[in-house]
């Protein structure tokens, strides 16, 4: 998320391929930009990196190090350096990822997503004791960071150690946007988007506002109020911006305003008043 705004670049080697990357960029982003598939659970390009899942580990070697010596680092949090050598799929890397997934499979035995990832790294069944739970949260905290980004910070990590979990301690803060649930890699946040005009998430029920003319759902009243405040706070000059209309209706209204005949009609209507 926080790319350096300078034009300075560094030269490094990833999986034997040389690349120039902007100073300050993370190894993960640079590798993916080269089309290299590095797995991750807690990284999202729009959110601050957090380094929670350790699935993105890679091996690095700095210039000057002995040839046999390498280090494992979390690539989502490790900025590129001049002369760095990186291996994204070595035996050591794969071995580490399989341990990460082995542990996750014990944490969330019900998650198909984690089980499939585990399989890709040779873990058919976890070697640890499975938790007895239907919960599939892997504590990647993507939901926490996303909610913070949209300006609500409703979600918190509670408790400590292996019992850590995420929840919304203050229900008023949640605006029912569903961003958290839609970004969750393991679908651990249950919700109902629209059940007879009601939305439910985090044990809270919301009304839904629909576009009068198209019937399209625009969001919860809390959500619309939040966007409106944000738009006003940013000094948006167009009052139409704040209209609670679907994109389709906004397009139509704009066209109507610019189309000459409609203008005449409006003028006639005005004069008739």
């Amino acid at each position: 998320m926080s790319e350096a705004k300078t034009n300075e670049t560094v030269h490094l080697t990833i999986d034997g391929r040389e690349v120039d990357a902007p100073k300050g960029a993370m190894i993960l982003d640079v590798a993916r930009g080269m089309g290299i598939d590095v797995p991750s659970l807690c990284a999202h390009p729009g959110l601050e990196p957090f380094g929670a899942c350790r699935l993105c580990v890679v091996e690095i070697q700095k210039p000057g190090w002995d040839d046999w010596y390498k280090q494992l680092v979390t690539s989502c949090l490790y900025p590129v350096e001049e002369g760095l050598k990186v291996w994204t799929d070595s035996d050591e890397v794969r071995q580490n990822r399989s341990v990460v997934l082995d542990l996750q499979m014990a944490r969330v035995p019900e998650s198909d997503y984690i089980r499939e990832l585990g399989r890709q790294y040779g873990v058919e069944k976890t070697s640890y004791a499975e938790r007895d739970t239907k919960d599939t949260c892997i504590m990647c905290t993507i939901c926490v960071r996303a909610c913070e980004a949209i300006g609500r910070s409703a979600i918190a990590t509670l408790s400590r150690g292996p019992d850590k979990y995420v929840d919304v301690p203050n229900k008023d803060a949640c605006i029912g946007c569903l961003v958290c649930a839609s970004l969750c890699p393991t679908d651990a946040i249950p919700f109902t988007a629209n059940d007879n005009g009601k939305r439910r998430i985090w044990d809270k029920e919301f009304d839904l506002v629909t576009d009068e003319r198209t019937g399209e759902v625009l969001g919860t009243p809390e959500y619309l109020a939040h966007v409106q405040k944000r738009a006003e706070g940013n000094g948006l000059v167009w009052p139409e911006t704040l209209k609670q209309e679907s994109a389709k209706v906004k397009r139509y209204e704009y066209a109507r305003k610019l189309s000459r005949v409609a203008d005449v009609e409006d003028r006639l209507a005005d004069e008739a008043k």
């Binding site: 961003v179 839609s182 970004l183 966007v227 994109a247 389709k248 906004k250």
Partner: peptide, 13 residues
């Protein structure tokens, strides 16, 4: 991240 704020904000749809 799919928040949809932009859809609400664009004056022209």
């Amino acid at each position: 991240i799919g928040c949809g704020f932009c859809v609400r904000a664009c004056p022209f749809g």
